Simulated scan of single mutants.
Amino acid sequence: MAKPLILVTNDDGITAPGLRSLIRFMSELGEVVVVAPDSPQSGMGHAITLDSTLYSTSLNIAPEDGAKQEYSCSGTPADCVKLGLQELLKRKPDICVSGINHGSNASINVIYSGTMSAAIEAGIEGVPAIGFSLCDYSWKADFEHAKPYIQQIVKQALHHQIPMGTVLNVNIPKNTDVGIKGIKVCRQAKANWKEKFDKRTNPMGKDYYWLTGEFELLDKGEDTDEWALANGYVSVVPTQFDLTAHHCIQQINTWNLNES
């Protein structure tokens, strides 16, 4: 049987160690084509490029990683997937994997994540997709302990097929002496960021701001991604991109919306 075609992308940029690790892991499972940003695009969410041109360059940064072909893209993670599916790949991939992100995309972070937005863009296009993140923000993070879990999840996704309209948000604990206990399928924890702006003034007298904040977990449940990660498990959250709050439709239909 032909090897599966795997589209690999990310938001940290084409030279990021997390991406290079994911390419190596996926090259053991199938034929890998990479389309990734030419510079870091963290926190871009689902932004796309509308008012400027996009550029793509064919390259091969590290042949030993095992990719059949690599392309850098001047746009966002969502742009990378759009361009890959519409222009660069010879056929529709069997799966798209995004990451490995340097840092958690659990709970509310999924909203801001370029890693997950790339996966969601693939899902919108009908391609099974998974976003992988490691809970370690270091550029020199150790990704090797994540390999068997990432490969197992991808193998199962290829075998069973991810339900249409759904992508998987996978977060992996950082490497510790304790190790990983296993994989848990979870719900997204309720959480937010308590944000503030650090206001400063430049030498020309112009004010500028740095966004800062603290993560606030509002959920004590033991079935969430945050609980799983805190207790040494890989978390897998099925994530849908239909944002309709279906449970509210009946209630809002009771409003007098058509009265003048």
Rank of each mutant, 00 (worst) to 15 (best):
G179I: 05
G123E: 11
V97S: 02
A122Y: 03
L85M: 10
I100Y: 01
E28S: 11
A189Q: 04
L89H: 00
A78N: 07
Y209I: 07
G43E: 12
S56R: 06
I95W: 04
A189L: 04
E222G: 08
N60C: 08
A146E: 03
V110M: 02
T166C: 13
M1T: 11
K199S: 13
T212D: 11
K68A: 12
G13Y: 10
A157W: 03
P163Y: 08
F197K: 15
G213E: 10
I124H: 15
E125P: 00
P40A: 02
N169V: 14
W139S: 12
W227K: 02
A62N: 11
E214T: 14
A67W: 07
N171V: 06
K220A: 12
I162H: 11
K181M: 14
D11C: 03
V81T: 05
E214L: 11
S42L: 06
V234T: 07
T115K: 04
H246V: 08
Q86K: 15
K68L: 15
L85G: 08
L89Q: 00
K206T: 05
I48N: 01
P163W: 07
W139H: 10
L83N: 02
C186F: 05
H247D: 15
R187V: 09
Y137D: 09
G18H: 04
M164E: 13
D94P: 02
V33G: 03
E125S: 14
Y55G: 09
M44F: 15
A146R: 02
L5P: 01
G99E: 00
I249K: 13
K199G: 00
E216C: 09
L89E: 00
L218G: 01
E195Y: 03
D225L: 01
K90E: 13
V35S: 04
K196E: 10
V185C: 12
S72T: 06
M1E: 10
Q250M: 02
T15L: 14
D242F: 03
V35T: 02
E70N: 01
M204P: 01
Y137W: 09
G165R: 06
H145V: 09
V154F: 05
Y208W: 14
D65R: 05
P203H: 06
G126L: 11
M1A: 13
S104R: 02
A228I: 05
P173C: 06
F25R: 00
E144T: 12
F197L: 14
H46Q: 12
F241M: 07
S39E: 11
E64P: 05
M164K: 13
G66Q: 10
G232N: 11
T115M: 06
K174I: 06
L54N: 07
N253Q: 14
W193M: 15
I100T: 01
S58I: 09
K184F: 08
Y149E: 06
N253V: 01
A141F: 10
Y149N: 05
G221D: 13
G103A: 08
T239C: 09
T49P: 08
V237M: 13
G66C: 06
M164S: 12
C73Y: 01
I61Q: 07
E195L: 07
Y208R: 09
E259V: 13
G165D: 10
E121V: 06
N253A: 14
